[in-house]
Structures are given as C-alpha cells and as structure tokens.
C-alpha cells in the first residue's frame, strides 16, 4: 500500500487558533482540510509537512450565507455546496464547476478551500519518489530542471482547480487570516505565475471565506474538458460571465484554466467583446483571440495541441450559451 510519511497532527478549534499554530510551526506545517489533494501528495512524498493542522474541528469556516452576495466558508465540503439548492439556482456556473470535480465520494470529503488552494499538477510531478528518480526529478520537487520546458526558469505545473476560474470570473474575493491579521484579496490576486509558488497566500495564512458579489443580471457558464465523466481533472476549462445591456455586452469576464500554472484572464478578448453583439462571427473571433492566451504544455492528459484547439471551441460554446 502507498503509505503516508509520519507527521504531527493538530486539530485546532477555530481559524484564529489555526493561524497561531501555523505561525508557531513555521513553513513545515500545512493545513489539511479534506485531505484529498494533500494526502495523495504526501503518499507520493512530494509534499512532506512535519505538522498537519487539520480544519476538521474548525466550525467557524463552514456554512454558506446568501444575502445579495454569497459567502462560503472555506471548509465547506464540495458536496455541501452541491446539495445547496439555492446555490444551484443563484450561481449555476459555480454549481456546475463544483459538481464536475472528481467523484461524488471525493466531493463528500474535499472542501472548496482546498480546491482553491489545490497544488498545481504535472505528469512529471504527480508521481512517487521512485518514479521521479527515474527522470532525475524536476524543478518543482527535488530536482533542478523542468522537463516540460527544459529551458524554462519557472515551473509549468497546471492549476487544475474547477472552481477557481468561475470564482475569478464572478469577481469573488478571498479572505485570508494570519496572526498578522485579516486581508481580503481579489480571487485572481491569489495566484502566482509559477507552478511552484502557485499561491500568493503566505504559508501561515488561512483561507477563511470566499465572497461572491451579487451577480445582478449577469449570467455565467463553466465548461470543463477532460477524458472521462468522473475522476478527471480538467485539461482545459473555460469560465465566462456576461452582463448584457439589451443585446450588447456590457461587461464580460472570460477565464481559462488548466492550461498553465495560473488561471488566464482573457483581457484583450474581454475588451474586444465589450459593447458588441454576441453574433456567431463575434463569438468565433473572440474564441480565436482567447485561445491565444492558452499555452498548454505536454504535462497533463491529452495532447497539448489538441487542448489548445479545444480551448477556442469551448470559449465559443461558452459565449454561445450566454448569448
């Protein structure tokens, strides 16, 4: 059996205590929520925290509040969100993203906080130590070279979260708590350019809340590409949010994910679309434009060339659905 390395296990009662422990333990401590990302990584020995700070007894991070805005506690399980009928009607794109994650059983365990903080993924990295030794390791863990892009100075491991692109498109904000206090950031600000330092969140910060502003008249859609209907991470994903003024685009957010270390906000496409009618020609053009921002490399399932092609198809379909 694949077994875990040993660790110290702490289960604080609230977010403040969690933050305190993280500060005290230093960078060798890691938060574990559902464990569905961290435990496999630990079994493969590419994440080896000496101390695990579990959120399992932390109750102030659970629950969903719905006023104008929707506020989700980071420790809410994916299944909890999936079962939330109001969430499904109010934020169907987010619901679709949640529902597309892994499997029903894993969604009973995984949390949205863990999904936001999900480690980046790469076929050269999500392997055990013996395997990685066969390729002489790689930059993200134990080695020096990125085998996906050997001349690269950064890691291209892929942000594979399903909820992140939707949260970014919807203008969500993340609240982070540490012993230094609380700060709230725009969702996109959470993510770094490098697959190694993929979060701007400091190691001692706890993600506590995700706030999704009132979506007004805007409608959103999420499209995920993967080989199988369950288990699989996205190999390309598109989140689109459009607010119309009559039949013209007033505001639009278009976010790609699973095509690089950082979710891609398609700014020029957004600019291009503003004020336009979503005719098939415009949508087609926008799709081409957006696909330029996607630079998938050969480190996930499916060929990178194919992923690049389907990005534009999926953008087209996403915008088409919002027409």
């Amino acid at each position: 059996m694949m077994r875990l390395p040993s660790f110290r296990y702490l289960a604080p009662k609230d977010a403040a205590e969690t933050a305190k422990i993280l500060t005290g333990e230093g960078p060798d401590a890691m938060i574990v929520a559902g464990g569905t990302d961290l435990y496999p990584n630990m079994k493969r020995r590419h994440q080896m925290p000496k101390t695990l700070v579990s959120l399992r007894n932390v109750n102030d991070l659970r629950g969903v509040e719905m006023n104008g805005a929707v506020t989700i506690g980071s420790n809410e399980t994916l299944r909890g969100l999936e079962r939330n009928a109001e969430l499904k009607t109010r934020l169907p794109a987010l619901w679709t993203a949640v529902q597309s994650i892994s499997t029903p059983i894993l969604r009973n365990m995984g949390t949205i906080g863990g999904n936001v903080c999900l480690d980046t993924r790469c076929n050269y990295y999500n392997q055990n130590w013996e395997w990685r030794r066969g390729i002489d390791f790689c930059m993200k863990c134990d080695g020096t070279v990125c085998w996906v892009a050997p001349s690269s100075s950064v890691c291209w491991a892929v942000n594979s979260s399903d909820t992140v692109p939707v949260l970014i498109a919807m203008g969500a904000k993340f609240t982070l708590v540490s012993t230094r206090g609380e700060r709230t950031i725009e969702a996109i600000e959470m993510f770094g350019e490098d697959g190694i330092d993929y979060l701007t969140k400091q190691k001692d910060e706890v993600l506590t809340r995700i706030e999704i502003p009132d979506q007004g008249n805007a409608t959103s859609v999420y499209r995920k590409v993967r080989r199988r209907g369950a288990f699989d991470f996205p190999v390309a994903a598109v989140a689109a949010r459009v607010e119309m003024d009559g039949d013209e685009v007033k505001d639009v957010n278009l976010v790609l994910n699973a095509v690089g270390p950082k979710p891609v906000v398609c700014e020029s496409t957004q600019e291009f679309l503003k004020g336009k009618k979503l005719t098939p020609e415009v949508v087609e053009e926008a799709a081409k434009l957006a696909a330029r921002g996607a630079k998938p490399l050969d480190n996930t399932d499916h060929l990178s060339m194919w992923r690049k092609k389907v990005v534009s198809v999926e953008v087209k379909r996403a915008l088409g659905a919002l027409r």
């Binding site: 076929n123 999500n126 390729i135």
Partner: peptide, 12 residues
Amino acid sequence: RFGVHKIPSMLE
C-alpha cells in the same frame, strides 16, 4: 525521459 512509464496510476 529515459523510458519512464508515462502514467502508472489509476487516475491517468
């Protein structure tokens, strides 16, 4: 990459 198995896991 030296002939490693590309995807020796149930997921991949």
